[in-house]
């Protein structure tokens, strides 16, 4: 088998294990390429049947409008259920406090909304599109990653995971995060998207938009970014390699209009995908710390 077939077969196997082992699973859908790939894999795993889980989107309220439009169109075509958890609701309920100042972002707040959404619907497993090649704390994660009743990951107490046997048994209140594309690299995902003809939001491809430079990174100018008189707004040709919310996802200058251009660009790039994520740069252990507190 070719490597993409191997990776696909493994991911389908994992998705079916989720269906077989859990009462109430969910697929965390961000509107990014990894979760769009997961939806495609779920179709391969369960069609012509329905998905045995809804899609769940944690909406920070600061999304790229293109992502939301894409999400709604995709869901309409799929005929599957979408549940949206709003960070704004957590703010309004006083559960989290919005950050202030120039570098304010709702990225950290979404963990609370995620955990609340999990609790509200009683999800026992959440499928995510995280990959081990993304970040060094993620490189440590199991395929079935158990979270305690506070949603926390304890990296020192991970269950042994042997062969392709995944132990999804949990106590009430705990949940399992499941990562079917753990073993895929960024390039694998793009090669698979090309092979399968998977459609993506337009912001992954080169386009022109207003950007400002913050800490050496190009941020999309938007109402969500606190722009002051020191900031210089430029109209530039860019694309996004990874899609989080508008306050923490940086653009890269790019002439890649088609998927072949993107694959060439990644092959030649000297910067990793998450190099454009401000949320990882907070500290050496930024991702580990967020995962411990319940981030996916």
């Amino acid at each position: 088998m070719d490597y993409l077939d191997q990776l696909e077969a493994e991911a389908i196997y994992i998705l079916r294990e989720v269906a077989g082992q859990f009462e109430k699973p969910a697929l965390l859908f961000s509107g990014g390429k990894d979760s769009i790939t997961l939806v495609h894999l779920a179709e391969k795993a369960f069609r012509p049947g329905k998905f045995p889980f809804p899609l769940v989107h944690i909406d920070t309220g600061h999304n790229f409008p293109e992502t939301i439009a894409f999400r709604d169109q995709l869901v309409a075509g799929l005929g599957e259920k979408l549940i949206v958890g709003y960070v704004q609701d957590s703010i309004d309920a006083g559960k989290v406090v919005e950050q202030k100042g120039k570098h304010a972002s709702r990225n950290a707040l979404q963990t609370v909304t995620l955990l609340d959404t999990i609790a509200e619907h009683g999800f026992d497993a959440c499928i995510g599109g995280a990959r081990r090649d993304e970040e060094k704390a993620r490189a440590k994660e199991r395929i079935f990653s158990v979270r305690d009743e506070f949603g926390q990951w304890d990296p020192k107490r991970q269950r042994p995971e042997l062969w392709n046997i995944y132990n999804g048994r949990i106590q009430k209140g705990e949940n399992v995060r499941v990562f079917p594309i753990s073993n895929w690299t960024e390039l694998d995902v793009w090669n698979y998207i090309r092979r399968e003809g998977i459609k993506l939001p337009s912001i992954y491809f080169s386009h022109e938009r207003d950007v400002i430079t913050r800490n050496g990174q190009l941020m999309a100018a938007s109402e969500f970014l606190n722009i002051d008189h020191e900031d210089v707004v430029e109209y530039r040709k860019v694309r996004f390699r990874t899609v989080g919310d508008m306050t923490c996802t940086a653009a890269v200058p790019s002439e890649a209009y088609h998927i072949d251009d993107i694959i060439d660009e990644i092959r030649l790039s000297n910067i990793s995908e998450r190099g454009a994520r401000m949320d990882d740069k907070v500290s050496e252990a930024a991702m580990e710390d967020r995962k411990k507190s319940g981030y996916f």
Binding site: D133, E135, K140, P155, K156
Partner: peptide, 17 residues
Amino acid sequence: GLKAEREQGITIDVAYK
């Protein structure tokens, strides 16, 4: 990849690369 590993200079859990 873990804080505890960097502190102690040892590998505690599997890292996939």
